[in-house]
Write a protein that binds this DNA or RNA. Sequence first.
RNA 1: GGAGCCAUGGCUCAGUUGGUAGAGCGUCUCUUUUACACAGAGAAGGUCACAGGUUCGAGUCCUGUUGGCUCCACCA
Length: 740
Amino acid sequence: MPIQRSVAMTDMDKNYDHRKHEREIYEKWEPYFTPSFAKASEGKPYTILMPPPNANASLHAGHAMYTIDDIVIRWKRMQGFSSVWIPGIDHAGFETQFVYEKELAKKGKSRFDFDRQTFYENVYKFVEKNSGLIYEQFKQLGFSADWDRSVFTLDKNVISQVFETFSRLEREGKVYRDEYIVNYCTHCGTSLAELEVEHEERNDPLYYMKYGPFVLATVRPETKFGDTAVAINPKDTRYQKYVGQVIEVEGLIGKFRVKVIADDAVEQKFGTGVVKVTPAHDPNDFEMGKRHGLEIKQVIGLDGKLNDKTGPYRGLKVNEARKRVVEDLYKAGLIDRVDETYKHSVGVCYRCKRTVEPMVVPNWFIKVDELKGPVIEAVKNDRVKFYPKRFKKQMLNWLEIMHDWPISRQIAWGIRIPVWYEVTDQANLYAVWLDKNGQKQEGLVYKYKDRLAEIEAGLQKVTAVTGPSGPKYKVSANKPGDNYLPETDTFDTWFSSGQWPLVTLKKDEFDTRFPTDMMGTLADILKFWVSRMIMFSLYLKNEVPFKDVYLWSMVADTKGVKMSKSKGNVVNPIDLVNKYGADALRVALVYGVAPGSKIPLSEEKVRGMRNFANKIWNIARFVESANHSSQTANPVEDDNWIMDELNKLIKSVTVSLEKYRFNDAAESMYEFVWHKFADVYIEKVKGRKEGASPTLRHVLITCLKLLHPFMPFVTEAIWWEIKDLRKYPDEMLITTAWPE
RNA sequence: GGAGCCAUGGCUCAGUUGGUAGAGCGUCUCUUUUACACAGAGAAGGUCACAGGUUCGAGUCCUGUUGGCUCCACCA
């Protein structure tokens, strides 16, 4: 039995130990991640842009799904494309500032202790400390991105692109500034786009309040001080006679008068069919106010406390104020009855989970009507294709209802909106700043005209009146003159990351690499990000940013439950890599997972895939040992069978990858390698008198190539071990050609 | 309220144009055989949620019911 004895002739370990190989292999690979080094640089360009992870983030299970991108880029590289995967980091304004402020809070400080410039620089330092770490983790997963090309969304070229885009939008009348009712998080101190608001089912008492001649239902009695009308449905015969009248209402701080209006927005069936209208603190009322020219009377400040228009309730936070107001209403006999069973949904901040306060705040908006048309067109015509298909419908659904985009964020960590307000003698500009002694000051800017330099140096926030009486402003990256103060709002993060395809590619690459080929990302950010990238690309380049979008869902735990810290079911992918190897984790993320569905990640599954890696290793050990023993050059009957199967496999894996059916590819390789090649063919070879034929090593070598995009480390490790079996012993697997 | 998706062996899930049910993990039996016990050989286990319909034939298409998920809209 020559084959058996010859086992000693290979020095391969009995089991594959990823710890011995992964680091060394990765270092040897790195030069090939950039197309200029690869021998394929003359091939057709193939480009993937990495969805930039947040600057504050360390690697979580979701990032491990970038494995998809890596599989594709490795496969294309082997196919001879000039392949590049461009990575980057997103400053993630709101997210990162939130995390940083939590750190600050531990030291007993808050953002209000700093001027915005200093605060910004502090966050920058904080982020710099973390950056690099996530790339190291990506490397542990084997990702073959061109790290030298990394782009950060606060890099100079990104900021200037963002400025340029904004200026152009402004010049073309697609930007406007308006008082608008936005969802405002008083805790985080910023307005939120609708997408950033989550809805929670709540049980709140519905108070039936006596209100002049009416009884009306409300869950927010504390906003009573901001009421500027009472509304009924125009068809409601019960109250017809009141319409147009001014009624007197007994309030808690004296009587006040409001007009009775008729509006279709009022449901006759809800409550008593009468509703109080508070344009400053309710989105529907705001709209109603616009239709009827009602006064916007703000009674809650941006700090979440009732203001001086509320008499004794001034300074109370909303919840506290509600309690007190209800008590006092009872005392005054103004509560008719209470429905304690009332359920409704309440908007909460996606970040801190506190109730958002609808608030009227000056905001910058992008008009999307004209911008979204071409996007809809492009999606409908499959100029951007979605995998799986159902996301096309979701995208179109969203685009249809997409409306003007509020891009102002009242946070410092981000790209400042490049606008400067002219300081005149008008009372239209209000500022908050730290004076030279570090003391907080605030007031109308015209009163401090002689101290502009000091204000600007210690500036925290500028608020400008909107409309015709507001200050003149100039859009400019740099200060346009002495009498100007900068806008302090920053852009919504998605405004800059939405231009990702435009800032990651070099100027001369737009001819060859644009549109890019594939965008692989989490389905959750389809609306936030993918839609905006398509929109900006079409607007600025008249071209879609990528041809294909492949979407996946969240990585979940064993039970299919979303991972979260509070549930304690978070799995750290790096732990799994350390324990079972990067290859095992990578295959576990695609094996048995349908496109677009959520990905249940269990340690058992990763272990199973580690076993598969070991199986491949041992197949190689066998082939290696067989090579040193007797063999025959003559094909044997079994060879035809395995060659047929192998050719079928090559075709099916290639086709599966073309269709982004990663599961199909992984499963068919697993099935072939383990249950056909090992269990059947190799067992037969063992029993042969003539020994092994060259087919044995041919099948192994082909399998290694097919498996490489999925399991790059173990395949490359074997590749180095079996040098004597190959035609070109010095060649690395990463640069070999894809089998055909 | 609108849209989409899902319900398949103990668990987690595959199943691309309709043609007699699959995987991984788990379970049971045997085997420490010499590539691998991170293994091999074998076994048990599913009327593919329910009710109709189309078809020669349906897990796969259509309708309805029940249960679950996601997105969107939203009544104070």
